[in-house]
Each structure stands twice: as C-alpha cells, then as structure tokens.
Nucleic acid binder design. Structure first.
Lengths: 165, 165
DNA sequence: TGAAACGGGTTGAGAGCTCAACTATTCCGG
DNA sequence: CCGGAATAGTTGAGCTCTCAACCCGTTTCA
C-alpha cells in the first residue's frame, strides 16, 4: 500500500498535456454537437451505432457496449430518444428479457443532419493538426490503451487490425 | 455547408480508437477517484491546483482556467468544497469583484489521501502500457492539439468557438 | 421440479454540468 | 464625472450521468 510510484516530472507533463488536450477536445466536440444539432455526443453515438447495424437494430446490451455506455445510461438515453421519435423499442422475440432498439427514419434523418458539422469539427480539431505520422502514432497508442481498458473488443469491425504491438 | 470533408476509413478508425481509449481511460480514472477518495476528478483537480499555488490561494478565474473549468462549474464546485471544509473563500482585497479561494489544511489532507490511489491508476492505465517512445509521441501530439485548442497557455473566457471554420 | 444464480434491462434519487440570466465592480471614452 | 461596455463571480433550471435497488426471464444444478 505504501511506496506509491509517483510520476516523474516528465510523466506529469505528459499526463497533464494529455488530460488538457483530451478534455478541451472533448468539450469542443460536445459543444459543437449540442449547439449545432441539439444532441449530446452520447446520443449522437447511439444513433450512429444503430445506423450501422443490420436493420438499424440492436439489442440494448449490444448497443450499450458499442456506444461505450453503461446499461443504465443507455436506458435513460434511449427513453429520451424514443420520446423524440428517433428510436423505437420492442421486445426481443428470442429472449423475452431483451429489448431491440431500432433507428427510425426520423432518427436517420436527424443523424444525417448532424453528421457534417460533427465530422468537420473532428477534422479541424484533430486531423488538420496532426501529421500522418502523428495520426498513425495516435492510433497505435489508442489501440494499445483500449486493449487493456476494455473487457472485450467493443466494436466488431477493425478488431482484426490490432494484431501486432 | 456542402462538400463535407468526410473521414477516410483510416481516419475513422483512428478517431474511434482515440475516442474509445480516452473515454474508457477517463471513466476508470473518474471511478477510481470517486470510489477511492469520494471525489470527482474535477474536484480533485481544483484541490491539486490550489495546493500548487503560492499560499495555496488563487483567484476564482485563475483557478477556473488552470483546472479546465468554466466559471459556472467552478463556482458550483467550490461551493461544495467549501461546505465540506476543504476550501475557503474570501473577497479579493485588490478587486472587489473578485474572490480568493484557499486550500484549507483539511483540504490538503484530503488531497494527500487521494493522491496515491489516483497516481497509481494513471500509471497502471497509461504509463505502464506505453513505451517511452509512445509516451513521447503522446506528449507531442497532446501539446500540438492543446496549442490549437486553447488560444493562450490557458485563459478562461476565451471559449468563443467562432474563430475558425 | 424447485431454488438459487445469472443476465437483461429499468427506475429513482442524488450529484455535477451547462446555459442563460443576473448582480456587482471596474474600465474607458467623451 | 457620467454612462456604457467589459470583467468577476453567482445562481437556478434543466438535463445527463452514476449508483444501487429492483423486476423479470433464463440457466444451472441438485
């Protein structure tokens, strides 16, 4: 319990810098979506994941994991999105405990409207600032970190590319 | 508004990976602090910045910018921290609009208790996973991003996002 | 078959955050 | 000096998120 492995000065600076960058970046992305599309990023992500799913439909638990959400959070969020008419829930036929969530046409439309502004923001704040080498490095670093952080592979596509390290 | 510069597949994967890693990392850090010390990271950061300041005292606006917080958020947070006895506020003598926030001895103690667990978590989740080269790369990337995200070293009211585009 | 354990999902309370509105002070031009 | 703009900080409403408790269906195993 004793003998904390404190951070060196260099590590501190790295941590602070990372913290600052990711927090500021996050805030900007969040604000852009909120003001430009009236959606929190968490909601945007739910719509986006559904839009990519076969039949635009997913089990709640699947949706939770692909959208990096707790079950509880997802439940609240989907309730809101359903009120707004963007998502529809129905019981899962094969497992009566389950629920299927589907993106409605209105939800798809909302997503289409929101996407350009969001993508533009991400491009400006992230990709326009980094060299190709830095982008590759960031990708590798993120993959390494994710591998240890996530209990399972979260998003099905692109898992195959995380071979080496 | 037309001609959105969509992300390439490669860019998408990078963005998703970064998003995933930083979100998961963030959640873990937040949860560790909340459960291990009963403090949200935002509060921890406020205490930490105060502890480093001369006299353990800062103007509210200074504290807001160094702790990456909006004025409003800081105001709420400091109100809570003051109730808890960790921070004390008093009017600023040189500017009667201002407030000075100081870390109390109890607050310092709380920070001392919270720090080891927090640092350990950061080390395990971040530094233990990355090679020295990756750490250096992450630092550089973060610096580049931060430089563009915050107009100056760190200023509070400079949140107007209408700059580019 | 029945009881416990597990898994899927929801709910409500409590807490923090954002946004906009507001007070009070200071700065600045005329 | 006066009046308007800018600055410092607070407040409250509304919303999202977390946590723990809960319900119901499914699986396990004796």
């Amino acid at each position: 319990m004793e003998d904390t492995r404190w951070l060196s000065d260099e590590e501190q600076r790295t941590w602070r810098s990372f913290l600052t960058a990711s927090r500021l970046l996050w805030d900007r992305v969040e604000r852009q979506l909120q003001q430009g599309a009236g959606l929190p990023h968490a909601y945007y992500e739910i719509l986006a994941r559904l839009s990519e799913a076969p039949d635009r439909t997913l089990r709640m638990s699947q949706l939770a994991s692909t959208s990096l959400s707790s079950r509880s959070r997802l439940s609240h969020a989907v309730a809101r999105l359903e009120e707004a008419g963007y998502v529809q829930r129905r019981p899962c036929p094969s497992d009566r405990r389950g629920q299927l969530a589907s993106l409605t046409e209105a939800g798809m439309e909302r997503l289409r409207e929101a996407a350009p502004g969001h993508v533009e923001e991400v491009r400006e704040l992230l990709f326009d600032r980094l060299t190709p080498e830095q982008q590759a490095a960031l990708r590798e670093i993120s993959d390494v970190l994710t591998a240890h952080l996530s209990p399972q592979p979260l998003w099905p596509a692109a898992v195959d590319s995380a071979a080496d390290e």
